[in-house]
Deep mutational scan, measured.
Amino acid sequence: LVRYRTISKIPQITLNFVDLKGDPFLASPTSDREIIAPKIKERTHNVTEKVTQVLSLGADVLPEYKLQAPRIHRWTILHYSPFKAVWDWLILLLVIYTAVFTPYSAAFLLKETEEGPPATECGYACQPLAVVDLIVDIMFIVDILINFRTTYVNANEEVVSHPGRIAVHYFKGWFLIDMVAAIPFDLLIFGSGSEELIGLLKTARLLRLVRVARKLDRYSEYGAAVLFLLMCTFALIAHWLACIWYAIGNMEQPHMDSRIGWLHNLGDQIGKPYNSSGLGGPSIKDKYVTALYFTFSSLTSVGFGNVSPNTNSEKIFSICVMLIGSLMYASIFGNVSAIIQRLYSGTARYHTQMLRVREFIRFHQIPNPLRQRLEEYFQHAWSYTNGIDMNAVLKGFPECLQADICLHLNRSLLQHCKPFRGATKGCLRALAMKFKTTHAPPGDTLVHAGDLLTALYFISRGSIEILRGDVVVAILGKNDIFGEPLNLYARPGKSNGDVRALTYCDLHKIHR
Rank of each mutant, 00 (worst) to 15 (best):
Q365A: 10
S313V: 14
R208S: 13
A242R: 01
D137Y: 01
L323E: 01
K285I: 09
N335G: 03
N306P: 01
G396W: 11
V212W: 13
S298K: 03
G281F: 01
H162R: 13
T233M: 11
L394E: 01
R421H: 08
D257T: 08
E112V: 07
I135E: 01
I91M: 02
G325A: 08
F420S: 02
H239T: 01
A107C: 01
F397P: 01
L207H: 11
I332L: 08
L201E: 01
F378Q: 13
L209R: 01
N335D: 03
N410R: 11
T120R: 15
A213H: 04
Y222A: 10
C417I: 07
I388R: 04
L78I: 06
M179H: 03
Q341V: 07
F296W: 07
L187M: 14
K425V: 07
N410P: 03
F304L: 01
G191H: 14
D178P: 01
H416M: 08
P184N: 04
H408I: 01
Y65T: 07
Q372M: 13
H162I: 11
G422F: 15
V100P: 01
G116L: 06
P117S: 08
S313C: 13
S313P: 14
L92R: 02
T295L: 05
Q379P: 02
A69M: 04
V307K: 01
C400F: 03
S258F: 15
L323I: 07
S192P: 12
E196M: 11
R214A: 11
A348D: 03
L187H: 15
S412H: 13
F108V: 01
S345H: 12
K66Q: 15
S308I: 03
L236F: 01
S277W: 01
G267R: 01
S331R: 03
H239N: 01
S297V: 01
T445F: 13
L92C: 05
P254K: 15
C406K: 04
D178S: 01
L109W: 03
I324C: 08
P118C: 04
V136M: 03
A348P: 08
Y293C: 08
T98N: 14
R358H: 15
K287I: 04
K285G: 04
K434E: 01
P163W: 12
